[in-house]
Amino acid sequence: MKLTRRHTLMLAAGSAVAAMLPMRASAAAEEAIAAFTGGAEVGSGGITLTAPEIAENGNTVPIAVDAPGAEAIMILAMGNPTPGVATFNFGPLAAAQSGSTRIRLAGTQDVVAIARMPDGSFVQASQEVKVTIGGCGG
């Protein structure tokens, strides 16, 4: 195929779009998950992640996690330069294995929460949060 200037531009545009898509799991995210789970299989159910569908500003996004009975919950922002956000370790006096905080998201991406249960199993929940780019930097 003869590569015209027009084709080249289209290809460049295509790869730019691909680069902007939220990464499903970067190497760093996979590493963080492996460190937390020890490579164990991660199921679903028994964990709730609450996050806004659309965040007004990626700098301060309120999220909440809840996994009844969990020992610990790790939160990851899969599209951030470094995916780790926080790991909640619950002590004997935690009334619920839940918590809320506010996080930074570098752009539209999946937020993932993985809970470690006392029997050594893992469950996860994830949600996409769209981060809007405002008109007024002000």
Binding site: N89, G91, P92, G99, T101, R102
Partner: peptide, 23 residues
């Protein structure tokens, strides 16, 4: 006795906020 112990990364927002339940 421990209620909560959180490891925090740079993705926690400025002026860190936590809400949780204790017995």
């Amino acid at each position: 006795e421990t209620v909560l112990d959180v490891m925090m990364e740079p993705a926690i927002s400025t002026n860190p906020f936590f809400e949780f339940d204790a017995v």
